[in-house]
Design a binder for these strands. Structure first.
Lengths: 208, 208
DNA sequence: GGGCAGACTAAGCGCTCGCTCACCCTCGGC
DNA sequence: GCCGAGGGTGAGCGAGCGCTTAGTCTGCCC
């Protein structure tokens, strides 16, 4: 509720649940480094340095560099799923719920671009087990959005040719915001969220 | 028109212009390796091995590993720009040209997913100079699509709130196909191209 | 104030990386 | 048949990687 949303490096949220203070600082440092240079190009020395610690300190709190990515990825996906769930299960028409889901999901990808980039684009750097765990969360995200689209089709609000394909396109559109969004660019996260909600409603033929 | 589109490793095209035969084999090997594991996780030994050569052979044809990525990126972006230019400059209404641009651009990203993945997602691995050269090509891609959208708005075919934002969303949607498309999945590149052309026409308020 | 647990560091191990170098084939011109 | 050039190789360099280990510092219970 009163969690700090901004740090020097950019956005931050919800890392409050990571409990030893040093472990949290290392995690945030890792998010920033992975987002900037990618997982494989980031060294453990770089992460530790950003957190103001020696390279060895990392291994007191995490077993491997991959465990850092795994933890970041799981927390991030849980947050993303939470956002979509809240929007999908609120009161309102399918159009209202879809617009809510898209605008809040996009706001998260734009405002939390650093985190979202790692979460969405470094999945392949995980080992098979961790990867499969994260993919399960991702399928749940897909199911939440598809549920809204199906509701809209059933109620006649939406006019959609291919529910599965359209759902995928909607999620794809939102996720890719993390790739191109620039905090110094012409839009705020709110503006992109509003624009995208409108575009998505047009995609599902919700009506005028 | 009659260029070979498929190889054992997946899709390939247009690499015919890379002239010493060994250099072309190395380039294709690099595309496959970069697409699978990412630039930084790929070793020069892996690239050379895929091309059936010793690690040292790579340095006869390319100065560094980065030069391989640079060459791949430039050729790929030139191909992408060419696709968009052909669609933008053909005869027809703005809606026809936009649908053509989207469906052919999406087909390239889906069918040539290996190449497209490298081209679209490994840009940050380039040095500043090479990166800037590629970004210039990317801005030209953006301009081609924006031109079609502006034509449609001017002629009254389209109903768009934010031309710049909508153009970005259209390109973003197409590019992200390279991230999720799976050759073993339920759709062919042609089907995704047709679905996306329909979705994009809805986004710009064409027709109906 | 002695002892001990936990957080942290300096130093460095073993390995693999991008890249180089000394050498070796093969082949066309004379 | 000898020569030179260009494409190729095996071995290995210096560097930097992920990670470990021996030891230090700090604070707290008795």
């Amino acid at each position: 509720m009163s969690t700090a949303e901004e740090t020097a490096g950019g956005e931050t949220s919800a890392w409050g649940e990571v409990t030893p203070d040093a472990a949290r600082r290392l995690l945030i440092a890792a998010v920033e480094a992975f987002a900037e240079r990618g997982y494989h190009a980031t060294t453990t020395r770089d992460i530790a340095g950003r957190a103001g610690m020696s390279p060895a300190a990392l291994y007191i709190h995490y077993k491997t560099k991959e465990e850092l990515l795994h933890r970041i990825s799981r927390i991030g996906h849980e947050k993303a799923l939470d956002i979509l769930r809240v929007a999908a299960r609120r009161e309102g028409t399918a159009a209202e719920r879809l617009a809510d889901a898209v605008s809040s999901f996009v706001r998260w990808h734009a405002g939390g671009r650093t985190t979202a980039r790692v979460v969405q684009y470094e999945l392949d750097s995980l080992g098979p087990d961790a990867r499969e765990e994260i993919l399960a969360l991702r399928r749940q995200c897909d199911a939440e959005v598809r549920g809204i689209v199906e509701d809209g089709v059933a109620s006649g609000e939406f006019d959609v040719l291919d529910v599965k394909g359209t759902t995928l396109a909607v999620l794809s559109l939102c996720i890719d915001v993390a790739r191109w969004f620039n905090v110094d660019g012409p839009w705020t996260p709110d503006e992109v969220g509003a624009l995208y909600a409108d575009l998505v409603l047009r995609m599902v033929g919700a009506g005028k």
